[in-house]
């Protein structure tokens, strides 16, 4: 129940080892992810409705083959960027997917309670109940979940007028984890760049590796803490800049790596504490007023 953010599983992604599988047409982690999840991919029925009144929808079903961004048919992808730091240029390959955050705004803020952080740690979307409002994508610091129109419960209601599809993203192979196996990408990586284990073990491993290569960690503090720890020989400040300049194209499915990315729930959490005092103040004010009335009536 509580503390899911503290216990549970995690991953360490060693960017000093990942070479982006440049010898392959599609990086290994991406291709096994697609194979493993093929049965979970959306199968929309034509014609896919356009949303009233904007006349738009998000349909990736004709671009299933895309592997260079996140889509409903591609839940992990590898970013390749040249990063210049301290006069040296390094090539960095970064496998990207959901970070499985400790206090995930995507799940917390789902208006219909269709996204949850599982006991094991992975954050999962219930594709049978999701209406595709894409709020989870907007509140995620990396805009991870991706929408496919023409599938899901909204098709049974009033598709043109309500909802927009279903959101899809990595679930860290929760079914495999429950069987005691590791996620498909972890197993497939030829460089052994993705480590998997208890979240705390992964955190330690990340710190140990960062020390060895005098590198940097990403994912430990971002969005209030996640269960994915990237370790890189170059700083994430420089990586983020390079990604924003050369990778992010303003369309869905490509994201930066902003250091210390904030959690949208931070400032409301401050207010939640003030909420505790509201009833006390209400009763206090009532006491004053009632006392005055009684005195007045004497």
């Amino acid at each position: 129940m509580a503390e899911a953010g503290q216990s549970g599983v995690g991953a360490m992604i060693d960017l000093s080892k990942c070479d982006g599988c440049k010898n392959l047409a599609v990086p290994k982690c991406v291709s096994v992810c697609r194979e493993k999840n093929a049965a979970n991919f959306p199968q929309p029925k034509e014609p896919i409705p356009l949303n009233f009144p904007l006349g738009t929808n998000e349909d990736w079903s004709k671009k299933k083959q895309l592997t260079n961004r996140l889509t409903p048919y591609n839940w992990t992808y590898v970013q390749n960027v040249k990063v210049t730091e301290k006069g040296k240029t390094a090539e960095v390959s970064i496998p990207r997917r959901c970070m499985h955050c400790d206090n995930p705004p995507c799940a917390n803020l789902c208006p219909f309670g269709m996204q949850t952080k599982s006991q094991e740690g992975p954050v999962v979307i219930d594709k049978d109940g999701c209406l595709g409002g894409a709020k989870c994508r907007s509140v995620c610091p990396w805009q991870i979940p991706q929408r496919q129109a023409g599938v899901g419960v909204y098709m049974k209601l009033a598709p043109k007028y309500l909802g927009g599809g279903v959101m899809f993203k990595c679930d860290l192979c929760l079914d495999r984890i429950r069987k005691g196996e590791v996620p498909a990408c972890v197993e497939a990586c030829p460089q052994k760049a993705i480590h998997f284990g208890s979240k705390e073990a992964m955190r330690q491993l990340a710190h140990q590796r960062a020390q060895e290569i005098s590198g940097y960690i990403y994912g430990e503090k971002e969005n209030g803490g996640t269960s994915t720890f990237y370790v890189s020989p170059v700083s994430f400040k420089s990586i983020h800049k390079a990604l924003m300049d050369h990778e992010v194209d303003g369309k869905n499915g490509r994201m930066g790596m902003k250091p210390l990315a904030e959690n949208v729930l931070d400032s409301p959490e401050g207010m939640a504490k003030q909420m505790l005092f509201a009833p006390i103040a209400g009763i206090f004010a009532a006491g004053m007023v009632a006392y005055k009335t009684m005195k007045g009536a004497e």
Binding site: P268, Q274, A278
Partner: peptide, 17 residues
């Protein structure tokens, strides 16, 4: 959240008064 604080205050005030 801000409006919820006002509502909680007003409702407890109303009940107590």
């Amino acid at each position: 959240y801000a409006a919820a604080i006002v509502l909680i205050f007003a409702v407890t005030y109303h009940l107590a008064v």
